[in-house]
Structure formats: C-alpha cells, structure tokens
Design a protein around this nucleic acid. Structure first.
Lengths: 236, 236
DNA sequence: TTTTGGTATCTGGTATACCAGAATCACGCG
DNA sequence: CGCGTGATTCTGGTATACCAGATACCAAAA
C-alpha cells in the first residue's frame, strides 16, 4: 500500500480556491457587477477571520486576479485588450512548446487520445451546443499540455487560462470559428501522428494566434477602469 | 506640474523583496546551508510582526521559492533536476516567442542594440571574467524579452529566471560553452537584423535548449530532500 | 447656491495573543 | 543498552485589537 503524505488543512488554501472560483464565476465585464471587495464582509461570509483571508488574497493578487490597493480597497481586475492579447501570446508560446515536446515524449496511446477527443466533440457540432463544444475544446488543449510531460508548462498555461474565462464567455461562437477550429485541430493531430515536431508546434501556435487575431478584431473597446462608485462585498 | 500618484508603502512588499533577494543570495545547494526558516526569527530580524511577514511568504510560496508546511516549518525549496529542466524548457518557450514578436515589433534601433550589447561583452572574453560575462549574457536575453513589447512574456520569464540563480552559479563556464554561446548569439542577431521571425525564434529556442542538454548532462545527482536536521532563521 | 474645510467613518495594515499539531527529548521499562 | 512512550517545547495557523490613511458627508462661509 502506498499513501501520499497528507498536508494539514489550511484555511488560506480553501479561501484561495473559493475566492478564485467565485471571481471566475463573476461576469466582470457586465458593468453592473461590483468589482470592489470588502475584507470584513468576505471574512464574515466565509466564516473565517481576516488573517487567513488576507493570505489567500495575496495569492490571488499574485495571480493577477485582484488588486489590493492599500487603504483603499480590493478590486477584481479587468483585463485590458492589450493584456488579454499578451495572455494569448504567452499561452501560444507555452502550448506550442508543449506540442513540440509531446511529439518527442508522448506515447502512441497518448497521441491517439487526441483524435479520440476530437472525434467526440466533432459530433457535438450537430447539437450546436456551444457550451459543450467549448468545454471539449479546452480539454483538447489541456491534453496537449498534459502529454508534453512537462508539468511546469501545464501549470503556467493553467494560470493563464484562468484569465480567459470571462473572455471566452463573450468571444464564443462567432462566424466560422467553429469549422476553422475543427480543421485546425485535425491538422494538429495529423502532425502529432506523423511525429513531426516542427509542424505540430507551428500549427498549435498558428491556431492560438488565430484566436489572438480574432479577439483583437472583435473585442469591444468599451473597457473602463474599475468603477469605484459601488461598494461592499460579493453579495451585499 | 505633473506628479505621478504615489502608492503607500507596504511592509509585505518590502518583506517580499528582501526575502526574495536573501534567498537568491543563498547557496541553497551547498549542503551546509540551513534551508529551514523560522517565522518568528525572520520577523525579529526584519523588525516587523509575523502578519505582514506571512503575507510576503505566501507570495514567495506562490513563486515556488519556498514551501510552507503547516505546523512543520518553512523551507527554501531546492529544485530537482527535472524541475530545473522544465524551467529551462518553459523559458525557451517564452523567449522563443519573444524573439518572434520582436522581429515583427521591435524598432531598428532596438534590434541594433542587441549587437551593441553582444559587442560589449565579447570583449570581456579576453579578461575571462566569467561573472561579468554571465551578467552581460543575461542582459542580452532580457533585452530580447524587452523588445518583444510583450510585458507578460518578460514578467513570466523573469519569474522563471529567478530559479536559475543557484543553477548558474555552478553551471557557469564549462567546456566550450563560452565560444558556442557567442556564436549562437551572433546567429540570433543576424536573424533579427534580417527580420526573419522563424529563424530568430528557432535559434533562440535551440540556444536555450543547448543549455537544457548541458544541464541534463552535467547536473550532479547528489540532490536530496531538504534536510530537516538544522534549525532556525537565515543567519543564526 | 457653491465651495471649502473639518470631522466622522470606513478600509486595509500591523501587532499581539492564543490555539493545536508536530517534533523533540527524557524517562522508564524490557 | 535499546526502544517505546509520554511530557515538553516549538512551529505555524487563526482570531482579535488597534492604528492610520482614505473617503464621504455635512456644515459654515463666500
């Protein structure tokens, strides 16, 4: 029997997870949401004191999800268009390298799993369930990160991915991105199956940069600085 | 008159900076250093209470520099060979993409600055001042990140770079890495000047992956888990 | 009515006190 | 002399109290 050492529970970890999930659920670009958080209110809602809460918030701040302004307030960050584009670029860099590694390192079954996944969600197309397609799409890309067998690449990509939640909510399903995306994926899979690292890396990068261009063209420019007119915690 | 808004001082920021610098100064692989930190001792040394200290430590933990084991202790992390290799891979991914962007975005003077930097430290070769060469080498690579005009890539690379401090301390100057490195740089510069994105990206990647192979071949396997025999803070 | 200055209040920042789990050491038994 | 066991000490985790800067509000003067 083999057991991994269990780490004692830590409120700050749970708080971090809970807050992170809550923030990702927020539609931070809607304009009606309150981007300002209140320590005391949050602590009360979570049923903990401010100390562990603040430690969790420090992590969120490091992740770029929130901003802590001393003596002023804690704000959920909106990403500017430029920041979002930078995120996509970095993501392309990571996934492209992951593809290169995967070609060299992944087992045949692992590579085969990509085609399986693609097949699974190409059926979705008929149902036109965009939400489900989007989820499967994401898993496909995460799978590439996985089979690169480079945990760091996967983790860094995940950290970036988080910032795309709210973006995906609105960029989803426009024009022919659907068909184009599936075609891209097929090309990527073929490169993998041919064990062509250069092609796989290139196609992954190009595919992601297509999203980059799409976002740049379609992202509304009505972004503003966080409005400080509203108050209080997540719910009140 | 124009003044930029001043942000209030925050102990946790200073603590973070100070601790980070202190950790980077440590020769964490020497075997004689104490990898265990003590909150109370650190707080006393820094002249602050434990609360802001812990907030700084949470950031360091997120950076992967330390590990906080509840009820046990705070340890400076040693990177395993695999982790170091992953870091180099990720770094290669970022800098390669930066090179690609730089070719498209950087101004002529910016690209020219690369050759200037290279020329400056190729003179160093005679003096054989490895330390200085290493510093200039680093700046060359940072410059590539800079002229990519993608702040995120630069920041992420910087976060990775931190973990290389201790590695560089020992991997420095072995075999013909010197001459090879300079040759690589020249090739990179030529690709930039030719505005050849594909070549620039490839050469930067290959150059970094050369370090990857070098580390893999030469890294001693005498790494062990953090020894918990020793005690107390940074100095005592 | 508008502006200005002061005050009350709110917010995050910091220090301190206390808690519980872990590690350590000493004692006593085999 | 070796080893197990229990008390002691140490460590990080959490809660609470207090501080100072920032903000908002209101009153008095122009």
């Amino acid at each position: 029997m083999k057991l991994k050492p269990i780490s004692p529970p830590s409120l700050k970890d749970h708080i971090y997870d809970a807050m992170r999930a809550a923030i990702l659920e927020m539609d931070i670009y809607s304009g009606t949401v309150d981007l300002r958080l209140d320590e005391r209110s949050l602590a009360e809602q979570l049923g903990v004191s401010r100390t562990p809460l603040r430690e969790g918030l420090v992590r969120l701040e490091r992740d770029g999800l929130i901003e802590i302004r001393p003596r002023s307030g804690i704000y959920v960050l909106r990403k500017s268009l430029d920041e979002i584009l930078d995120i996509i670029v970095a993501w392309a860099a990571l996934e492209s390298m992951a593809a290169r590694l995967a070609v060299e390192r992944a087992s045949d079954p692992e590579i085969a799993s990509l085609r399986v996944m693609a097949a699974r969600y190409s059926e979705t197309e008929a149902g036109a369930d965009i939400l489900e397609y989007s989820e499967n799409n994401i898993r496909f890309h995460q799978r590439i990160l996985e089979i690169s067998h480079c945990a760091l690449l996967a983790r860094m990509a995940e950290d970036l991915f988080v910032h795309m939640h709210a973006v995906r909510r609105r960029a989803m399903g426009e024009g022919d991105r659907f068909a184009r995306s599936r075609a891209d994926h097929m090309g990527i899979i073929e490169a993998f199956e041919a064990r062509d690292a250069e092609a796989a890396a290139t196609r992954v990068r190009v595919h992601t940069m297509r999203l980059h261009d799409h976002v740049r063209r379609t992202w509304p420019e009505d972004r503003a600085a966080p409005d400080r007119t509203q108050r209080k915690g997540l719910s009140s």
